[in-house]
Write a protein that binds this DNA or RNA. Structure first.
Lengths: 144, 144
DNA sequence: CTCTCTGCAAAGCATTTGCACATTG
DNA sequence: CAATGTGCAAATGCTTTGCAGAGAG
Protein backbone atom coordinates (compact mmCIF):
# COMPACT_ATOMS: atom_id res chain seq x y z
CA UNK A 1 0.00 0.00 0.00
CA UNK A 2 2.30 2.69 -1.10
CA UNK A 3 -0.75 4.87 -1.46
CA UNK A 4 -0.48 5.53 2.22
CA UNK A 5 2.62 7.57 1.67
CA UNK A 6 0.85 9.71 -0.86
CA UNK A 7 -2.30 10.05 1.15
CA UNK A 8 -0.62 10.76 4.43
CA UNK A 9 -0.84 14.50 4.08
CA UNK A 10 -4.55 14.37 3.50
CA UNK A 11 -5.16 12.02 6.35
CA UNK A 12 -3.37 14.34 8.69
CA UNK A 13 -5.43 17.27 7.48
CA UNK A 14 -8.96 18.21 8.33
CA UNK A 15 -10.14 16.92 4.97
CA UNK A 16 -11.57 13.55 4.13
CA UNK A 17 -9.66 11.04 2.11
CA UNK A 18 -11.79 10.13 -0.88
CA UNK A 19 -11.05 7.94 -3.86
CA UNK A 20 -11.04 11.00 -6.10
CA UNK A 21 -8.50 12.85 -4.00
CA UNK A 22 -6.34 9.83 -3.74
CA UNK A 23 -6.42 9.45 -7.51
CA UNK A 24 -5.46 13.07 -8.04
CA UNK A 25 -2.50 12.65 -5.73
CA UNK A 26 -1.46 9.53 -7.56
CA UNK A 27 -1.72 11.27 -10.93
CA UNK A 28 0.49 14.05 -9.65
CA UNK A 29 2.95 11.50 -8.39
CA UNK A 30 3.28 10.02 -11.87
CA UNK A 31 3.30 13.10 -14.03
CA UNK A 32 4.51 16.61 -13.48
CA UNK A 33 3.37 19.98 -14.79
CA UNK A 34 -0.08 18.61 -15.40
CA UNK A 35 -3.01 20.84 -16.20
CA UNK A 36 -6.37 20.21 -14.57
CA UNK A 37 -7.57 18.62 -17.80
CA UNK A 38 -4.58 16.32 -17.96
CA UNK A 39 -5.17 15.27 -14.39
CA UNK A 40 -8.81 14.64 -15.17
CA UNK A 41 -7.80 12.37 -18.03
CA UNK A 42 -5.53 10.31 -15.84
CA UNK A 43 -8.00 10.10 -13.02
CA UNK A 44 -10.79 9.08 -15.35
CA UNK A 45 -8.66 6.26 -16.72
CA UNK A 46 -9.24 4.39 -13.50
CA UNK A 47 -12.37 6.14 -12.36
CA UNK A 48 -14.66 7.33 -15.17
CA UNK A 49 -17.25 9.88 -14.25
CA UNK A 50 -15.05 12.11 -12.17
CA UNK A 51 -15.76 15.74 -12.93
CA UNK A 52 -13.43 18.58 -13.71
CA UNK A 53 -14.96 20.58 -10.89
CA UNK A 54 -13.79 17.96 -8.43
CA UNK A 55 -10.29 18.11 -9.85
CA UNK A 56 -10.16 21.84 -9.32
CA UNK A 57 -11.63 21.60 -5.83
CA UNK A 58 -9.15 18.92 -4.93
CA UNK A 59 -6.19 20.79 -6.31
CA UNK A 60 -7.20 23.82 -4.34
CA UNK A 61 -7.29 21.82 -1.14
CA UNK A 62 -4.00 20.11 -1.87
CA UNK A 63 -2.39 23.45 -2.51
CA UNK A 64 -3.77 24.75 0.77
CA UNK A 65 -2.23 21.83 2.64
CA UNK A 66 1.01 22.36 0.82
CA UNK A 67 1.07 19.08 -1.08
CA UNK A 68 0.70 20.68 -4.46
CA UNK A 69 2.24 23.65 -6.16
CA UNK A 70 0.66 25.67 -8.96
CA UNK A 71 2.50 27.22 -11.81
CA UNK A 72 0.44 29.67 -13.82
CA UNK A 73 1.73 31.95 -16.48
CA UNK A 74 -0.69 34.18 -18.32
CA UNK A 75 -2.99 32.83 -20.97
CA UNK A 76 -2.66 29.08 -20.80
CA UNK A 77 -4.08 26.74 -18.22
CA UNK A 78 -2.29 26.45 -14.89
CA UNK A 79 0.06 23.53 -14.30
CA UNK A 80 0.14 21.54 -11.10
CA UNK A 81 2.84 19.43 -9.53
CA UNK A 82 3.47 17.58 -6.32
CA UNK A 83 5.72 19.40 -3.91
CA UNK A 84 8.74 17.19 -3.57
CA UNK A 85 11.94 19.15 -3.78
CA UNK A 86 12.43 22.88 -4.07
CA UNK A 87 13.00 23.76 -7.66
CA UNK A 88 12.54 26.52 -10.17
CA UNK A 89 11.13 26.80 -13.67
CA UNK A 90 12.31 27.37 -17.18
CA UNK A 91 9.42 28.20 -19.47
CA UNK A 92 9.86 28.25 -23.23
CA UNK A 93 8.06 31.25 -24.64
CA UNK A 94 7.66 29.47 -27.93
CA UNK A 95 6.58 25.91 -27.27
CA UNK A 96 5.47 26.58 -23.70
CA UNK A 97 7.39 23.61 -22.36
CA UNK A 98 8.24 23.71 -18.68
CA UNK A 99 11.47 22.43 -17.20
CA UNK A 100 12.34 22.02 -13.56
CA UNK A 101 15.73 23.21 -12.40
CA UNK A 102 17.28 23.35 -9.00
CA UNK A 103 19.41 26.33 -8.12
CA UNK A 104 21.64 27.24 -5.27
CA UNK A 105 21.36 30.57 -3.60
CA UNK A 106 17.80 31.45 -4.46
CA UNK A 107 16.50 30.67 -1.03
CA UNK A 108 18.81 33.06 0.73
CA UNK A 109 17.91 35.84 -1.66
CA UNK A 110 14.19 35.16 -1.27
CA UNK A 111 14.44 35.16 2.51
CA UNK A 112 16.34 38.42 2.41
CA UNK A 113 13.69 40.01 0.22
CA UNK A 114 10.95 38.81 2.53
CA UNK A 115 12.75 39.91 5.67
CA UNK A 116 13.40 43.36 4.29
CA UNK A 117 9.68 43.88 3.65
CA UNK A 118 8.34 42.04 6.66
CA UNK A 119 6.84 39.07 4.82
CA UNK A 120 6.32 35.80 6.66
CA UNK A 121 5.29 32.24 5.81
CA UNK A 122 6.90 32.54 2.44
CA UNK A 123 7.19 30.37 -0.59
CA UNK A 124 9.32 31.43 -3.52
CA UNK A 125 10.09 30.53 -7.05
CA UNK A 126 12.39 31.76 -9.76
CA UNK A 127 10.95 31.62 -13.24
CA UNK A 128 13.05 32.04 -16.32
CA UNK A 129 11.25 32.59 -19.60
CA UNK A 130 13.19 32.16 -22.80
CA UNK A 131 13.63 30.09 -25.90
CA UNK A 132 14.48 26.47 -25.31
CA UNK A 133 17.26 24.68 -27.14
CA UNK A 134 14.91 22.94 -29.55
CA UNK A 135 12.95 26.01 -30.49
CA UNK A 136 16.14 27.98 -31.02
CA UNK A 137 17.35 25.23 -33.29
CA UNK A 138 14.18 24.70 -35.29
CA UNK A 139 13.34 28.31 -35.94
CA UNK A 140 15.24 30.95 -37.78
CA UNK A 141 13.61 33.86 -36.02
CA UNK A 142 15.76 36.71 -34.92
CA UNK A 143 15.91 37.61 -31.27
CA UNK A 144 14.05 40.84 -30.61
CA UNK B 1 6.93 66.61 -25.33
CA UNK B 2 8.11 64.08 -22.86
CA UNK B 3 5.78 61.66 -24.58
CA UNK B 4 8.54 61.07 -27.05
CA UNK B 5 10.59 59.30 -24.46
CA UNK B 6 7.74 56.98 -23.73
CA UNK B 7 6.80 56.43 -27.33
CA UNK B 8 10.32 55.92 -28.57
CA UNK B 9 10.20 52.16 -28.30
CA UNK B 10 7.08 51.96 -30.39
CA UNK B 11 8.40 54.32 -33.02
CA UNK B 12 11.47 52.19 -33.43
CA UNK B 13 9.37 49.07 -33.79
CA UNK B 14 7.44 47.84 -36.76
CA UNK B 15 4.20 48.98 -35.13
CA UNK B 16 2.35 52.20 -35.63
CA UNK B 17 2.16 54.82 -32.97
CA UNK B 18 -1.49 55.49 -32.30
CA UNK B 19 -3.16 57.67 -29.71
CA UNK B 20 -4.42 54.60 -27.91
CA UNK B 21 -1.01 52.99 -27.65
CA UNK B 22 0.52 56.20 -26.51
CA UNK B 23 -2.14 56.50 -23.81
CA UNK B 24 -1.53 52.96 -22.61
CA UNK B 25 2.16 53.68 -22.31
CA UNK B 26 1.43 56.85 -20.40
CA UNK B 27 -0.90 55.03 -18.03
CA UNK B 28 1.79 52.47 -17.35
CA UNK B 29 4.24 55.26 -16.70
CA UNK B 30 2.00 56.69 -14.01
CA UNK B 31 0.79 53.57 -12.27
CA UNK B 32 2.32 50.18 -11.68
CA UNK B 33 0.86 46.70 -11.35
CA UNK B 34 -2.18 47.74 -13.32
CA UNK B 35 -4.70 45.26 -14.64
CA UNK B 36 -6.09 45.63 -18.14
CA UNK B 37 -9.29 47.04 -16.65
CA UNK B 38 -7.39 49.60 -14.60
CA UNK B 39 -5.46 50.67 -17.66
CA UNK B 40 -8.71 50.97 -19.61
CA UNK B 41 -10.09 53.26 -16.91
CA UNK B 42 -7.09 55.54 -17.06
CA UNK B 43 -6.99 55.60 -20.83
CA UNK B 44 -10.70 56.32 -21.06
CA UNK B 45 -10.30 59.28 -18.74
CA UNK B 46 -8.67 61.16 -21.57
CA UNK B 47 -10.04 59.18 -24.47
CA UNK B 48 -13.52 57.73 -23.90
CA UNK B 49 -14.59 54.99 -26.23
CA UNK B 50 -11.39 53.00 -26.15
CA UNK B 51 -12.15 49.32 -25.93
CA UNK B 52 -10.78 46.68 -23.65
CA UNK B 53 -9.83 44.61 -26.65
CA UNK B 54 -7.50 47.37 -27.78
CA UNK B 55 -5.91 47.50 -24.36
CA UNK B 56 -5.15 43.80 -24.49
CA UNK B 57 -3.89 43.99 -28.04
CA UNK B 58 -1.67 46.90 -27.16
CA UNK B 59 -0.30 45.26 -24.04
CA UNK B 60 0.54 42.20 -26.04
CA UNK B 61 2.50 44.24 -28.53
CA UNK B 62 4.27 46.20 -25.83
CA UNK B 63 5.25 43.01 -24.13
CA UNK B 64 6.58 41.67 -27.40
CA UNK B 65 8.75 44.74 -27.85
CA UNK B 66 9.94 44.46 -24.30
CA UNK B 67 8.43 47.68 -23.02
CA UNK B 68 5.98 46.00 -20.72
CA UNK B 69 6.18 43.13 -18.28
CA UNK B 70 3.29 40.92 -17.22
CA UNK B 71 2.83 39.48 -13.82
CA UNK B 72 0.17 36.81 -13.64
CA UNK B 73 -0.50 34.61 -10.71
CA UNK B 74 -3.36 32.16 -10.92
CA UNK B 75 -6.92 33.26 -10.53
CA UNK B 76 -6.92 37.01 -10.63
CA UNK B 77 -6.37 39.25 -13.62
CA UNK B 78 -2.82 39.76 -14.84
CA UNK B 79 -0.95 42.89 -13.82
CA UNK B 80 1.13 44.93 -16.19
CA UNK B 81 3.99 47.32 -15.60
CA UNK B 82 6.49 49.29 -17.63
CA UNK B 83 9.92 47.73 -17.79
CA UNK B 84 12.17 50.23 -16.11
CA UNK B 85 14.52 48.51 -13.74
CA UNK B 86 14.95 44.82 -13.11
CA UNK B 87 13.04 43.90 -10.02
CA UNK B 88 11.24 41.05 -8.37
CA UNK B 89 7.89 40.56 -6.68
CA UNK B 90 6.51 39.97 -3.25
CA UNK B 91 2.89 38.86 -3.42
CA UNK B 92 0.75 38.73 -0.31
CA UNK B 93 -1.29 35.55 -0.34
CA UNK B 94 -3.91 37.20 1.82
CA UNK B 95 -4.55 40.70 0.50
CA UNK B 96 -2.98 40.04 -2.91
CA UNK B 97 -0.89 43.19 -2.74
CA UNK B 98 2.17 43.27 -4.95
CA UNK B 99 5.47 44.85 -3.95
CA UNK B 100 8.50 45.43 -6.11
CA UNK B 101 11.88 44.53 -4.69
CA UNK B 102 15.32 44.61 -6.21
CA UNK B 103 17.71 41.83 -5.37
CA UNK B 104 21.33 41.15 -6.04
CA UNK B 105 22.47 37.86 -7.39
CA UNK B 106 19.30 36.71 -9.06
CA UNK B 107 20.53 37.48 -12.52
CA UNK B 108 23.61 35.32 -12.26
CA UNK B 109 21.55 32.41 -10.97
CA UNK B 110 18.99 32.82 -13.73
CA UNK B 111 21.65 32.94 -16.40
CA UNK B 112 23.26 29.83 -14.98
CA UNK B 113 19.96 27.99 -15.04
CA UNK B 114 19.35 29.06 -18.62
CA UNK B 115 22.86 28.17 -19.75
CA UNK B 116 22.68 24.74 -18.18
CA UNK B 117 19.52 23.90 -20.14
CA UNK B 118 20.37 25.72 -23.34
CA UNK B 119 17.81 28.52 -23.03
CA UNK B 120 18.39 31.79 -24.86
CA UNK B 121 16.79 35.24 -24.99
CA UNK B 122 15.77 34.97 -21.40
CA UNK B 123 13.83 37.07 -19.00
CA UNK B 124 13.57 36.09 -15.37
CA UNK B 125 11.75 36.96 -12.22
CA UNK B 126 11.80 35.82 -8.65
CA UNK B 127 8.41 35.75 -6.98
CA UNK B 128 7.99 35.40 -3.26
CA UNK B 129 4.51 34.61 -1.97
CA UNK B 130 3.83 35.10 1.70
CA UNK B 131 1.94 37.10 4.27
CA UNK B 132 2.70 40.79 4.26
CA UNK B 133 3.44 42.73 7.40
CA UNK B 134 -0.04 44.21 7.64
CA UNK B 135 -1.89 40.96 7.13
CA UNK B 136 0.30 39.23 9.67
CA UNK B 137 -0.48 42.00 12.13
CA UNK B 138 -4.21 42.18 11.55
CA UNK B 139 -4.95 38.50 11.57
CA UNK B 140 -4.45 35.94 14.28
CA UNK B 141 -4.31 32.98 11.93
CA UNK B 142 -1.76 30.33 12.59
CA UNK B 143 0.80 29.58 9.96
CA UNK B 144 0.06 26.28 8.26
C1' DC C 1 -26.27 9.48 11.24
C1' DT C 2 -24.08 13.77 10.28
C1' DC C 3 -21.12 16.29 7.83
C1' DT C 4 -18.43 16.52 3.81
C1' DC C 5 -17.73 15.52 -0.90
C1' DT C 6 -19.18 14.77 -5.70
C1' DG C 7 -21.31 15.16 -10.36
C1' DC C 8 -23.73 18.02 -13.18
C1' DA C 9 -24.61 22.00 -15.40
C1' DA C 10 -24.68 26.73 -15.36
C1' DA C 11 -22.29 30.92 -14.22
C1' DG C 12 -18.22 33.98 -13.98
C1' DC C 13 -14.07 36.27 -15.43
C1' DA C 14 -10.26 37.37 -18.12
C1' DT C 15 -8.77 37.37 -22.55
C1' DT C 16 -9.11 36.73 -27.63
C1' DT C 17 -11.05 37.31 -32.16
C1' DG C 18 -13.88 38.46 -36.65
C1' DC C 19 -15.43 42.11 -39.04
C1' DA C 20 -16.42 46.65 -41.09
C1' DC C 21 -14.81 51.16 -40.54
C1' DA C 22 -11.21 54.60 -39.17
C1' DT C 23 -6.39 55.93 -39.00
C1' DT C 24 -1.45 55.99 -39.73
C1' DG C 25 2.65 56.49 -42.40
C1' DC D 1 -3.57 54.92 -50.91
C1' DA D 2 -2.23 50.61 -48.79
C1' DA D 3 -1.42 48.57 -44.66
C1' DT D 4 -2.56 48.59 -39.85
C1' DG D 5 -5.22 49.54 -36.02
C1' DT D 6 -9.78 50.14 -33.64
C1' DG D 7 -14.51 49.50 -31.63
C1' DC D 8 -17.96 46.43 -31.00
C1' DA D 9 -19.79 42.33 -29.69
C1' DA D 10 -19.61 37.66 -29.74
C1' DA D 11 -16.75 33.66 -28.69
C1' DT D 12 -13.45 31.13 -26.09
C1' DG D 13 -11.09 28.92 -22.35
C1' DC D 14 -10.19 28.24 -17.67
C1' DT D 15 -12.02 28.05 -13.27
C1' DT D 16 -15.68 28.47 -9.81
C1' DT D 17 -20.17 27.53 -7.81
C1' DG D 18 -25.19 26.02 -6.41
C1' DC D 19 -27.61 22.18 -5.66
C1' DA D 20 -29.36 17.51 -4.66
C1' DG D 21 -27.83 13.07 -4.00
C1' DA D 22 -23.67 9.86 -2.58
C1' DG D 23 -20.04 8.67 0.53
C1' DA D 24 -16.73 9.02 4.61
C1' DG D 25 -15.92 8.80 9.41
Amino acid sequence: MEAKTVDAGLLQSRYRLTRQRSAVLRALGEGTHLSAEMILERVRAEMPGVSLGTIYRTLDILRGIGLVQIFSYGGSAARYEAVLDKHHHLLCSECRSLTNVTAEGVERIARDMAAREGFSDIDFSLTVVGRCRDCAKHSHLQSV
